[in-house]
Amino acid sequence: MLAIRDLRAEVDGKEILKGISLEVAAGEVHAVMGPNGSGKSTLSYVLAGREGYEVTGGSATYDGRDLFGMEVEERAAAGIFLAFQYPVEIPGVSNLTFLKTALNAVRKARGEAGLDALDFLKLARSRASTLEMSDALLQRAVNEGFSGGEKKRNEIFQMAMLEPRLAILDETDSGLDIDALKTVADGVNALRAPDRAMLVITHYQRLLDYIVPDRVHVLSAGRIVKSGDAALAHELEAQGYAAFAGEAAGV
């Protein structure tokens, strides 16, 4: 579904991704782990198309399409979803208005009819309840005044509503206490499906106890230095990133 080859990218003229290759097939969950500054968030932003993140080499294809030839909203409409590490607050736009606009834009791109207000509300309420999100949170302005946990839950709620084919979760665990982490992980696991792939980006192994990945990749200084199965996450937790960074440098 997603094939990244020798991807290089820079931010403000500084190379952050230095040749990343990664393949994620439908139905798979891949974890990308790495210390701060290793390029994890840059990878997620490059895949989502954020301005200021310049691709300088390599390629990425999504379902065979050149990802970098697609606008941000085209990628979303094609089924790519980025759960933000820092969800943006948008005063004056209610969560529901925002989601209805987004859902109907994505449905339109898929050739489906838009949902009317009533059907939309039914769907939103049922998806929100499984994530323990209150009606009040749905009515409020997007992420405005939300706690860290509420923001992350709101991201997974949006994901549940938009039903993407490729979900990129950027440090979804950061700032969550253990109860919130379980709720969010349950929400993510409920979305695991044979035709859906996930890229879970995280600093800590903790999240991967709840969202068990098929593959784990260790990112260090803009390169994938090691790949393995779920056991690799535990190995990392025990040994720390430094051991792997050394491996990459060939020491």
Partner: peptide
């Protein structure tokens, strides 16, 4: 960017933010 990353095209995203 947040709005566009959810599939809302740029024109509509601008209108939404202006209305807000």
């Amino acid at each position: 960017f947040y709005l566009r990353a959810r599939g809302i095209d740029e024109a509509e995203a601008r209108a939404l933010l202006t209305r807000a």
